[in-house]
Design a protein around this nucleic acid. Sequence first.
DNA 1: CTAGATTGATCAGCATACTGAAGATCATTA
DNA 2: TAATGATCTTCAGTATGCTGATCAATCTAG
Lengths: 157, 157
Amino acid sequence: MKVKSNDEMPGHLARRFQQIATAVFLSETTAAGYDLTPVQYAALSAIKLHPEIDQITLAGLIAYDRTTITGVVDRLVEKGLIIRTASSRDRRSRELTLTARGEEVLAGVTPAVEAAQQMMLRGLSQTEAAQLMRLLRKVIDDANDLSRAPYKPLPSR
Amino acid sequence: MKVKSNDEMPGHLARRFQQIATAVFLSETTAAGYDLTPVQYAALSAIKLHPEIDQITLAGLIAYDRTTITGVVDRLVEKGLIIRTASSRDRRSRELTLTARGEEVLAGVTPAVEAAQQMMLRGLSQTEAAQLMRLLRKVIDDANDLSRAPYKPLPSR
DNA sequence: CTAGATTGATCAGCATACTGAAGATCATTA
DNA sequence: TAATGATCTTCAGTATGCTGATCAATCTAG
């Protein structure tokens, strides 16, 4: 049987890239004095853009699984970065909003996050980096509904 | 503060692509009647190529963390796909080798794995797919030492 | 040859991710 | 309006991944 090299497997390359992206993110943000995971940062910035968002809508915006978001939100609440209150319109759902400290942390850590995005692409030229991101967006967009946690844009109200 | 869209974050794109790759892998291999994770498949095929490999070398070949490999190997042993024996040369290390059933499973599941690799790139043309993989290889190669579990080629003996 | 450094494996602890199920609540329709 | 279905959240269970520590075995320098 012919065995394919890992380098020929897009799935393997995906795992490696994500592994590196996470390591660089944590290294940069830790060096800047913050204690946030990539996932927590994405949630935080989505909540800033959409105050009083419920968990399901948040999960759709950043393509998280609905069961994963529960723990992420728990930890953000524990850290005092967001508050979770029962919705008055729909008592099933919880509304998420940044605290003042959440605003501070988000603003403070963002430069380190930007630096991380640069560093993880350091092997590529500007043109290549743009090309990679274009191709990733295309492939992700086309395969969006193949995972249990697809991206779902904000419902228009 | 200007907040960047997720689409402009390579780290976010990395997570999404990996999420999709895993989902497609599991969907295809499950449909083919197998119960293997992407990580278990990679380990299995590396062990086939390098019988009697020790765990640290295996981890380096597929860029796993050394502490993660323990559990993965545990589960492959439980499933009867590999055997783990104490090395006679170095009593600290364990030698891993496929069982007959491991060989069968690897051979049997491989078509589904190949199909998954095609499906996760279904939004791209042949040219674009090759381009994406080239750029991913380049970025990963250059940032290899930025994660705790870098790729380490087989030591020449 | 032996003290100190290194290495292979494992462990505890934490944080994603997913499957499938449950409970509470809401919406719709007969 | 009452029954039915859908939705929001959470939970138990499993599998990566990582940090930092420990233990046993090996290697190396003085």
